[in-house]
Design a protein around this nucleic acid. Structure first.
Lengths: 231, 231
DNA sequence: GAGAACACGTGATCC
DNA sequence: TGGATCACGTGTTCT
């Protein structure tokens, strides 16, 4: 990587390169005051160790320049993402970035509380509904979020069928590569206990949520969605 | 603001303050190499101009420190907003901020296209519907977004009543301090022409959108929402 | 020691 | 002009 930092190449080829090698060197240039000889600071570079020191210093400053460039590159893409931040300084730009992230997070949260928006984390919520009112049936309400894929729905139906469950009501929302299903499911009590039913459902849904897609379907947004809407 | 940069106060009180005044000065400290006298660079500070130069340099470095601190403060609040960015360097943190802003914007856009979500910019869209099928009536569909406030709805009703408009269908969504109304409105042709009706509607809605709240209602989020969902 | 990351003071530039 | 902002090279620290 730093193959051009060898001792034989420590001399700058052009004035431009030289002038970019530090104002401290320029500051002591004898042209500025011919009667004042530059003194070498104790732990700085004098002749016998110049090449090494010089190339070390050069690689240091070059690495630092690369680091600055990486940071500034991200800052300029951020500037493109935030309207009205054209002529802001760095601190101002970052301040409005903070505002926007907060704002967008809050709006995502508001939207998800009002509407049936898929959450960013896989979740399975199972609650049984007024068991006392009906002696023969178990009625459970299931809320289920995971990554969406084409086979998911048929797998879900097959699994529910295997568990001898009847779908009373279903509300399915697919948004941004995520899916959220809210089911009202019914089971005959003699088939299984409420406890075992819940357990079977949980296993089924966990398997469906974590199993990879068997089709060559590519999820729309591969970016990791790790904003927890609840936070 | 810089009242402590006067010439009479250019001497540091403590070693801590001194040590923060630049490594160049320390580097030429006679303790380091007693036989090498520090030479003064041409345009640097020597005695007659020391106080001025010294305080100028000091205010410069202090201003620069304040600037760095402002930037770093924003960076650390950003770090709190982005999970899993605890141990990232600055460039990495900014890269994931870019990712998140892109992601959140895309999700806001997805949500708004699927659902009747209020847009961030005030907008009035009026289109007439199949005028030919009904000779006596003008049927217009109105989409309208603006800041929400308690009096808005009654103002809207009063305005529509004044225009002799009948509401056939209405879909109102209020979310995050913004409101979006979709109306299907009907008018008798003899009352006015389609053109003048559209004009009157546009004036009415523009007035309602821009008029300040007469109640002491405070909008929930005072942050300016200038993300254009369409972009 | 080599490399990466940070804070610092400084010259340049723009109002 | 002085105040603010930026890029730069450097000292320091951690791994």
């Amino acid at each position: 990587m730093m193959d051009d930092s060898s001792c034989s190449e420590y001399l700058p080829e052009t004035h431009e390169t030289l002038s970019s090698w530090g104002h401290n060197l320029q500051q002591f240039n004898s042209q500025d005051s011919p009667f004042v000889l530059p003194l070498i600071p104790t732990n700085s570079c004098y002749f016998p160790t110049w090449p090494q020191e010089f190339s070390a210093s050069r690689s240091h400053s070059e690495a630092e320049k690369r680091r600055r460039d990486r940071i500034n590159a991200q800052l300029s893409t951020l500037r493109k993402l935030i309207p009205t931040s054209e002529k802001m300084d760095k601190a101002g730009l970052l301040r409005s970035v903070v505002e926007h992230v907060k704002d967008l997070k809050e709006r995502a949260k508001e939207t998800s509380t009002v509407l049936n928006t898929p959450s960013d984390i896989d979740e399975v919520i199972i609650e049984e509904e007024d068991e006392s009112s009906n002696n023969n049936n178990i009625l459970v309400k299931v809320s289920f979020s995971c990554d969406d894929r084409p086979e998911l729905f048929s797998e879900l139906n097959r699994g529910l069928k295997n568990l001898k469950l009847t779908t009373i009501e279903a509300n399915i929302t697919s948004l941004g590569g995520r899916i959220k299903c809210i089911f009202s499911l019914q089971s005959i009590k003699v088939v299984c206990t409420t406890h075992s039913l819940k357990h079977s459902l949980r296993v089924l849904l966990a398997r469906i949520a974590t199993s990879p897609s068997t089709s060559n379907f590519r999820i729309k947004s591969k970016r990791q969605r790790f904003f927890l809407l609840a936070s």
